[in-house]
Amino acid sequence: MTSSPARLTRSDVEHVAKLARLALSDAEITEFTEQLAVILEHAALVSALDTSDIPPTSHPLPLVNVLRADVVKPSVGRDELLTSAPDAESGRFRVPRILGEAP
């Protein structure tokens, strides 16, 4: 049996928002702290079940690697894909600075 974790706090929500790359407003953090705690308390029903001998199921099919022959096939071209990009330059995606500060 797995014990139920403690009630979700505001600082948990701030931490998770950072992990999920969501710049939530103060109002959203307040709202989510309340709502997620209620949902997780309901979900604690499953945390309380004795499943010590039960293996996990991650997928409905007994999947193994699906391989194919290594043959070149036509695919969507770079220029066409880059037309969907918010910003592109010289055949590449253009993004803001990636070095210097931790996100």
């Binding site: 797995t2 979900a43 499953v46 945390s47 079940l49 499943t51 039960i54 293996p55 996990p56 199921t57 991650s58």
Partner: peptide, 9 residues
């Protein structure tokens, strides 16, 4: 992890 075990049940 627990939810996946319940999925097995």
């Amino acid at each position: 992890g627990q939810a996946q075990r319940v999925r097995t049940l």
